[in-house]
Design a protein around this nucleic acid. Structure first.
Lengths: 247, 247
DNA sequence: CCAAAAGTGTTCTTACTACACCCATGG
DNA sequence: CCATGGGTGTAGTAAGAACACTTTTGG
């Protein structure tokens, strides 16, 4: 914070980029837009845009999210991820991007934003396969966002951000299985999440939407931390197990 | 990344701020400078400065660190912490600061940097006591940095970044105790760190610098993750236990 | 000898794993 | 009735907590 010589504070552009993750059709998906102008014209990219002089970083992230998804006040979770400011990450100029991570329930299909030629959900596995698929350094940002999301499921109630307001233990378990790419024992999982005080709140209602015996519907509880954490099994190369009840 | 209208990319200043932590004299300390110019003239602040147009963020952080500590290639750890960009965090202009976290062994007293009127180590407890003590939003940045450091000790070998190149199990345990503010059982701690393959590497040498029976000297091992993690006991209000062997 | 710190062994307890088993619904 | 998923019980195991005890130095 020293060095007040104006020459010592070169101008930067500051952007926010969004890693918006959801679970839909038994897959973890990310929101991507199709770029309509150079550089990387026609390539896919994470949604994002310039921060305005009169708005905070989180405000800018929420505004971009609203512009891309068309949702005024969306349910879900938003947090800062990290900043990316390599000298040549944008060939046009010096840009520092403050990436944010958003976890959302299965939203209605996004409405293309003003500048984005196209916005859609893309399976994360596809996006991660090819490091060149996304423009700029967005592949790295996506990798970091996905890893952050996976890690946070272990010790936080954030998996519920992928679920609708009311959900069954089965649906919550599917989130863990799909995001982590592992199979979890349904019975032990049930005991773990229902046995941790404050993690889930019963609504008293039940549903049979999964078939079989009616399941309790829960809402997210009030505890901010899951302790002891949910243990992530070794990812021993197994593909994501399919859910027979998958629609 | 949309919106290429030049009017849509207002100029920002980008800085790096540093949370440099060390353990010295049985206390966790942070590097602070005394500001020599307004705003907050005369107040303490975290070291930092403007990012130059031709350097990456991490390069800028390392440069600032070198300028403040006078060490060309310091031992320790540096990682990005988070970015702080509230509209009015700097009264002069719009600034986004990318904070970095540095964990260092007990270094020689810092050499005041070019722009800093004074640089010194201050106990973190003192700095955290008064939210107004540090300039700008540096109190918040420090809180976040300390919390990150505390969390990372649990599942990473980063506590060794606070130690000299060769250290005893006792010294490593004191790092955990001081950073966490808890007492740990020396015998269980010993079993844990020496029993986790790859966490520590024996040098074969011993030392009696703590008094008593000679202790093995270790170097940091090669594993990047401590699994299962070191469990942080409930901080039940006890003050940091003093080490009778404290110098 | 004693004090102090290093390091090992043993018991108790917690919490996860694996899996048998029963429950409640729809068709 | 049967299929399907919901939910409980229980035995085995991994690992932390607590603490008794032996080892090796300095004074």
């Amino acid at each position: 914070m020293q060095g007040h010589d104006p020459a010592a504070r070169p101008p930067f552009a500051v952007t926010v980029d969004l890693v918006v993750l959801t679970v839909r059709r038994e897959e973890m998906c990310a929101l991507v837009v199709r770029r309509g102008s150079p550089p990387f014209c026609g390539r896919q990219a994470l949604p994002g845009g310039f921060v305005r002089v009169d708005e905070d970083l989180e405000t800018a992230a929420k505004r971009e999210l609203r512009e891309e998804t068309g949702l005024a006040d969306f349910p879900g979770h938003l947090e800062q991820l990290a900043s990316y400011g390599d000298r040549h990450r944008d060939p046009r100029m010096r840009v520092v991007s403050v990436a944010h991570l958003v976890l959302a329930p299965d939203l209605p299909d996004p409405r293309p934003g003003s500048d984005a030629a196209e916005a859609c959900w893309a399976p994360v596995s596809t996006l991660l396969d090819d490091p060149q698929r996304l423009a700029f350094d967005h592949h790295r940002i996506l990798v970091d966002g996905v890893e952050r999301a996976r890690a946070k499921l272990e010790y936080s109630p954030l998996a519920t951000a992928f679920c609708p307001a009311e959900f069954t233990v089965h649906e919550l378990r599917r989130v863990y299985e799909i995001v982590w790419g592992v199979a979890l024992d349904p019975r032990n999982f049930h005991r773990k999440v229902t046995g941790t005080p404050g993690f889930l709140a019963r609504t008293g209602r039940t549903t049979t939407r999964g078939g079989g015996r009616p399941a309790q519907l829960y809402r997210r509880g009030e505890v901010p931390l899951l302790n002891p954490p949910m243990l992530r099994p070794d990812r021993a190369g197994q593909p994501v197990p399919a859910d027979p009840a998958a629609r």
